[in-house]
Design a binder for these strands. Sequence first.
DNA 1: AATTTCGTACAGTTTTTTCTGTACGTTCTT
DNA 2: AAGAACGTACAGAAAAAACTGTACGAAATT
Lengths: 189, 189
Amino acid sequence: MSLDQFEDERDAAIHKVRKRVIETIGRNMDLYGISQSTGHLYGLLFFADKPMTLDEMGREMKMSKTSMSTGVRTLLDLKMVNKVWEKGSRKDLYEVEYDWYQTFTDFFDIKWRKSVESNILILSKSIDEMGRLLTEYEHDPGFTELLRKDIAKLHEAIAYYGWLDRLIDTFESGEIFKLVPKEPPTPHS
Amino acid sequence: MSLDQFEDERDAAIHKVRKRVIETIGRNMDLYGISQSTGHLYGLLFFADKPMTLDEMGREMKMSKTSMSTGVRTLLDLKMVNKVWEKGSRKDLYEVEYDWYQTFTDFFDIKWRKSVESNILILSKSIDEMGRLLTEYEHDPGFTELLRKDIAKLHEAIAYYGWLDRLIDTFESGEIFKLVPKEPPTPHS
DNA sequence: AATTTCGTACAGTTTTTTCTGTACGTTCTT
DNA sequence: AAGAACGTACAGAAAAAACTGTACGAAATT
């Protein structure tokens, strides 16, 4: 079913509802650092009855194939969509990852984890260097006081990132679902 | 201590270390939907020995006061900085919220919660409407099949957002710190 | 009451991001 | 082997976001 062509009032009706949901999804996608239109694309794929090709996406979104290509890549990187293999078709097919819990945990594993680890690295290095300055200027009370304050702040920061790292661990391992269980799946599936 | 003026090599040394940390923090701040330069501003405030005024920030960042004003507002909205009252001073003073755990949970409470609730609302409405279409076109097997699939997807989505909502609850209540304590578990003998 | 000192609204400019069309390498079909 | 179909690199255009300077209202000082 096309989002643009209304064969009759049935299709127009379902299209209207879908459109609103797609736009809502797209609008809130900035939480994942994704542009509005890529979020829109995600919404489109969410409702697609079957995996879609780049050309189909472009037609529905009224956008260039190039944009679809980059949009899909962004979503692939975040594991929000998957590439699907279908024998007989030369085209690449994509569908959304319907397990949103997985999408959520993957997002933190991909984006946040990287940040956390790089930050911990820099912070550790900085503590070391400030420690060196501390011994180098130990005779200078004003300066060492300054250094001590900074070092204390950096230690606090590292402790926080350590916590964040462990939190993401519980996402990745699924342990988080012990504390916050998934609701039982809805009827029909 | 200024970030730009080096009174001597001591200050240059600590400045260099601080700068690297500030830039690291700034760079990773996009996870919170914050621009690089506002992240940079946050980093500056993080190291400030005392609350700063907009003019001081502008001087350190080599940016306009207007930009400082908007940057600080962004950080205030996310509760990443706090306004500080100091009698005797007419100027507004700001300092970072040093409790980063609080900052983390506030972030989800402010940004994610809003998304979650708006999404749940739209999804519920959409399910209702599709349910109406379902009875309206119950004689049309092809169409009802389509509707049923969509409704199932929407139910799945709502279940997920419900989970997310409950997860954010555990952030807000501090319950999350039972599962993931701030202190790393010490390996006992 | 007049003056100074704030913070920010607003319009215009600069910078960054997003989007498009063309071109090209690769893979499949013939 | 030649031709067609596919995805994407790349450069330029369009759109969005960030930044600045001016101006102005509010509050404190004189």
